[in-house]
Design a protein around this nucleic acid. Structure first.
Length: 261
DNA sequence: ATGGTAGAAATTCTA
């Protein structure tokens, strides 16, 4: 089974790219972030006509997550127990969507950006991560993947210029500790060993052309899932503005292959 | 310290 995660930066503006990506790489399950649409704006008939099941969650024009699967999409859950506002349909920060696809529980996650360390959104980010880790601890004994945009650079190598990120989000010790807590708790980051390099390049200042990016998109697997990973890669071509006739997302997709159970 | 680009929506917000 081949799964992928991609911060698509608007699903409606890039639906053609999504369909081409699914076909190009023969993807079974695709988790999307920053769909920038509410559910009712995403019928996605084209995907359904091609045999994909679709689940989407979004309450505003900024965030939103989705799952696209051709190997089943069962037990869809919006958010997770313990998340701030969980169970409240008006909650605008519920950036998690889970479903069971082909026997694997997959969560499409958009971790809050944090904005700046002194911003309330930063404290919210750390709190959100703590609550996610608590909820996710119950999923460790099943084949589970926590995939998406974590908005954290776990190491200095994941930043093109650490000095430029002093006092910025994504690299603070508290954020890195929050990420490390997942690993200490038994989750395995399964992409790094197979797929070095960045996954995000800012639109500004020709960051992609100069390979000045960040590695912030990850796949964390439970032990049963991590044991099935055979390889992974980052589809940098999807981020390359010189390829294709439409503008790319600022993130590249990350693809992971799983051996049969 | 600022601004650069992109998307959604509607004059600004978010990333």
């Amino acid at each position: 089974m081949r799964i992928a995660t991609w911060n698509v930066n608007s699903l409606r503006s890039r639906i053609d790219r999504v369909e081409a990506f699914l076909e190009r790489h023969d993807i079974d399950v695709l988790a999307l972030q920053e769909t920038k649409a509410r559910e009712e704006q995403l019928p996605l008939m084209g995907l359904q006509a091609r045999g994909y099941d679709v689940a989407a969650h979004g309450l505003n024009q900024w965030n939103g997550v989705a799952l696209i699967s051709r190997v089943g999409l069962e037990d869809v859950a919006v958010g997770f127990p313990g998340q701030p506002g969980w169970g409240d349909p008006t909650e605008t920060e519920a950036r998690a969507l889970g479903a069971t696809c082909g026997g694997v529980r997959i969560w499409s996650l958009y971790v809050p950006n944090g904005r700046k360390p002194d911003d309330p959104h930063y404290a919210y980010k750390l709190d959100w991560l703590t609550r996610l880790q608590t909820a996710a601890a119950d999923w460790l004994d099943q084949p589970t993947a926590l995939v998406g945009d974590w908005n954290i650079c776990p190491t200095d190598d994941d930043v093109f210029d650490v000095a430029q990120f002093r006092n910025s989000t994504h690299v603070t010790p508290a954020e890195r500790a929050a990420f490390q807590a997942f690993l200490d708790g038994g989750w395995h980051e399964v992409t790094r060993a197979h797929a070095p390099g960045y996954t995000y390049w800012d639109y500004y200042r020709q960051r992609f052309e100069r390979d000045r990016g960040l590695k912030i998109d990850f796949v964390l697997g439970s032990p049963a899932l991590a044991a099935r990973v055979t390889t992974a890669f980052i589809d940098r071509d999807e981020r390359d503005p010189s390829l294709g006739s439409t503008s790319p997302s600022d993130h590249a997709p990350v693809v992971v292959d799983l051996a049969d159970a």
